[in-house]
């Protein structure tokens, strides 16, 4: 589950949670240039895929790590 409202996601028991940057744009970020947004979305989705490939027992947050945005 990709959402900015992590506390609600935990409370309803969502097992795999990837935090997005804002409620109105779970899989984007209008506050950065388009190339940086594309890179963010790619990392976000990649993290969601990591999550579904990982065994969990309870609501678990999969933060998207910071990376050097080489050409951002």
């Amino acid at each position: 589950m990709i959402t900015n409202l992590v506390t609600i996601a935990e409370q309803v028991g969502a097992p795999r949670i990837v935090p997005g940057r804002g409620i109105p744009y779970p899989s984007g970020d209008p506050n950065v240039p388009p190339s940086a947004e594309q890179s963010w979305r790619r990392r976000l989705v990649q993290r969601a895929l990591d999550a579904v490939a990982t065994a969990v027992e309870r609501p678990t947050i999969f933060e998207v790590g910071d990376v050097e945005e080489a050409h951002a």
């Binding site: 990709i2 109105p24 744009y25 779970p26 899989s27 984007g28 970020d29 209008p30 947004e37 594309q38 979305r41 790619r42 976000l44 989705v45």
Partner: peptide, 13 residues
């Protein structure tokens, strides 16, 4: 969301 619907559903990625 309406300016770029991929912000709601990441289809492009």
């Amino acid at each position: 969301a309406n300016a770029d619907p991929n912000r709601i559903v990441p289809l492009d990625t």
